[in-house]
Design a protein around this nucleic acid. Structure first.
Lengths: 108, 108
DNA sequence: CAAAAATATAAGTACATGCTTATATAATAA
DNA sequence: TTATTATATAAGCATGTACTTATATTTTTG
């Protein structure tokens, strides 16, 4: 069973418009920080700090590939996480824009 | 469809240990402020301020009966609210304690 | 190795949050 | 009507949050 503090921590991570948008973007596909910087039009440290909060709350996991760090959804420890994600507005078009602009990171 | 700001507001309301406990208590039955003050062992203004946040986020609704204001769960506008509630630790025993101590409010 | 690119961390600042105490409002009871 | 009980609101304060700019770390490339 989960304790009060941990459930509250999870909702603190969800209690910010920018982090909700990040989660909605990761629902489409994994993304690295520099891609999120482009899409969200925010500074790199601001995005990095949001990712740290999401990671500490165990809502995302990271995977390093070369110079990039790719983030993807996790959240499996919270039974309600999936249904929170389903409520978020769709962000597919923002990622399409990124691809069209040629700024999608391609590696491997 | 719900906007980012409103979803974030909802999670801000859920991002506090005390408010999560209040919701878990209201899952058992509707309660008035003075009962919550007893159970949570907090000052009355502190509880009132938490109830205002929950009400503004549309997670609870209020019903006045005489000098008491009874709060009960709402949250129907958020598709994920029910599954958030199901994750919360049980609080049935705390309300049993209140009844045994003779501090349960009886009216009508 | 030195330079470049991606990311993380640190310090500073403005604003939000959760409590406190004091006071206001509302309904009931004497 | 006056006192009592329940609740709400307001102001003040300590702490937390989300950004900023500056700098550190990590990996790749020449």
């Amino acid at each position: 069973m989960m304790d009060w503090e941990q459930i509250a921590e999870c909702h603190k991570a969800l209690a910010d418009k920018t982090r909700l948008r990040i989660l909605a973007l990761l629902k489409v596909e994994e993304l690295c920080v520099c891609e999120l910087v482009e899409i969200l039009n925010m500074t790199q440290p601001a995005v990095s700090q949001h990712m740290r909060k999401l990671k500490n709350a165990k809502l995302v996991k990271e995977r390093r590939n070369g110079q990039w760090v790719f983030y993807s959804l996790d959240g499996s420890i919270y039974p309600f996480f999936q249904s929170v994600l389903e409520t978020l507005p769709k962000m597919r078009s923002e990622i399409e824009e990124l691809k069209k602009s040629g700024r999608k990171v391609v590696c491997d």
